[in-house]
Nucleic acid binder design. Structure first.
Length: 187
DNA sequence: CGTAAGATGAAG
DNA sequence: TTCATCTTACGG
């Protein structure tokens, strides 16, 4: 079965353990996805809740389409579009456990603490040098890609909670992370 | 058109 | 707890 054929919340869970890799001009950086959130149709926190606009258009692409947006005027976050074409749903990547190119991440982030490199959606975007030009790239076909886990994360090691930093839909249990992992976005 | 709020992070 | 910072999207 193909990961991207699943429904959005299933993709959000199964993405845990996958490695996100960016082959940039400066070098390769990579990290294990340890925290995700789902954004669905009918969900008021979803950028595609109301209608398709220039900003959220990548969410309506085929599953695997990349959606990068700017928030608070200074930060960027990265999502992977899910479901079929023309359905505005996606999974937000919230945290990585750094594995490759840690020196490069430290340089880009301006900090040496490994735990502080990718423990937040805007942090990992900076560490991995993800940018808006990646909109409409595909997560299996381009220089920003995912590779499967060597060991699948068991269901019992996946924690489900409400999402972070939103006011609408704050009660929906659409956030997932790997149990006991020290690299998630909260202490 | 004007403007409030936003899927954050760092510093105080 | 505050603030930096600016685009998007909604209301008038």
């Amino acid at each position: 079965m193909n990961l991207l054929d699943l429904d959005t919340l299933s993709v959000a869970k199964q993405l845990l353990g996958y490695t996100l890799v960016h082959e940039s001009d400066e070098g390769i950086t990579a990290g294990i996805i340890v925290e995700t959130e789902g954004y669905l149709q009918g969900d008021p926190a979803c950028h595609a809740y109301r209608r398709k606009t220039e900003r959220n258009a990548p969410m309506f692409g085929e599953a695997g389409n990349i959606y990068v947006y700017q928030i608070y005027g200074m930060h960027f976050c990265v999502n992977i579009s899910t479901n079929q074409k023309d359905v505005g749903e996606a999974v937000l990547i919230r945290a990585l456990q750094p594995t490759i190119g840690i020196d490069l991440m430290q340089k880009r982030r301006g900090t040496t603490s490994i735990k502080n490199l990718c423990s937040g959606p805007a942090k990992l975007v900076q560490a991995m040098q993800i940018h808006k030009g990646m909109n409409d790239w595909h997560i299996l076909k381009d220089d920003l890609k995912i590779t499967p886990p060597s060991v699948i994360i068991p269901e019992s090691d996946i924690i489900t909670t409400t999402r972070i930093g939103i006011t609408q839909g704050a009660d929906l249990p659409y956030r997932f992370y790997i149990k006991n992992n020290p690299f998630i976005s909260k202490k």
